[in-house]
């Protein structure tokens, strides 16, 4: 019962934050709504027995990725942008309509297909303990892990080449 209450509160926060991102006029507020959404998801991860992921979610997403976003928004002075008009006038109403259609479709599919999943069972002993995740990560998924590290290196070099190519480094976004 307590879990259900917690789920409903967090889900509402996550949805409101998502809608806030969708309709925020100011990019700084949009970023903050997304941060709120990520924090809510971290709480949901905790209720799903994934404390490790919840902490990684906060550290990487809320703590690093979104700070980078805010940094770029403030650096470029790109807080507000006139959204109306533009070359394709009917794009925005159509976008909302399509979004609504997608929502209804997904909801319908889940109602038909996923309601049979039933309740979540209590997790087995030390489910998702950090040590267990580490065992799996460094044994069965070692190759993806190594590829991810190479990917990060490539991304770092790419970002440096793109932003730092000019000699007059304008307080690079690193």
């Amino acid at each position: 019962m307590a879990l259900m209450t917690l789920f409903i509160i967090t889900a509402v926060i996550a949805l409101v934050a998502g809608l806030g991102l969708l309709f925020a006029r100011n990019a700084v507020y949009a970023a903050l709504f997304l941060v709120l959404n990520m924090l809510a998801l971290a709480v949901l991860f905790l209720t799903l027995g994934a404390p490790f992921l919840a902490m990684v979610q906060i550290t990487v997403y809320a703590g690093a990725v979104m700070v980078l976003f805010l940094f770029v928004v403030m650096l470029l002075g790109a807080e507000t942008l006139k959204e109306e008009g533009g070359p394709i006038a009917w794009q925005r109403p159509l976008a909302l309509l399509l979004g609504l259609v997608l929502t209804v479709l997904l909801a319908a599919v889940i109602f038909i297909e996923a309601t049979g999943l039933g309740n979540i069972l209590p997790p087995p002993e030390d489910y998702a303990a950090p040590s267990r995740l580490a065992m799996l990560l460094f044994q069965r998924y070692l190759l993806p892990f190594e590829i991810a590290s190479v990917l990060l290196l490539v991304a770092m070099i790419a970002a440096l080449v793109m932003v730092g190519s000019k000699k007059k480094t304008s307080s690079s976004s690193r």
Partner: peptide, 30 residues
């Protein structure tokens, strides 16, 4: 306990909001 379908439903709604955001907004950062 909370049924799994609730979580999946929430995920689907958030995903739809994300898709709508990509179509709807014009600020590249958003």
């Amino acid at each position: 306990m909370v049924p799994t379908s609730f979580y999946v439903f929430l995920a689907a709604l958030l995903f739809a909001i994300g898709v709508t955001g990509v179509l709807f907004r014009r600020n590249t950062l958003i």
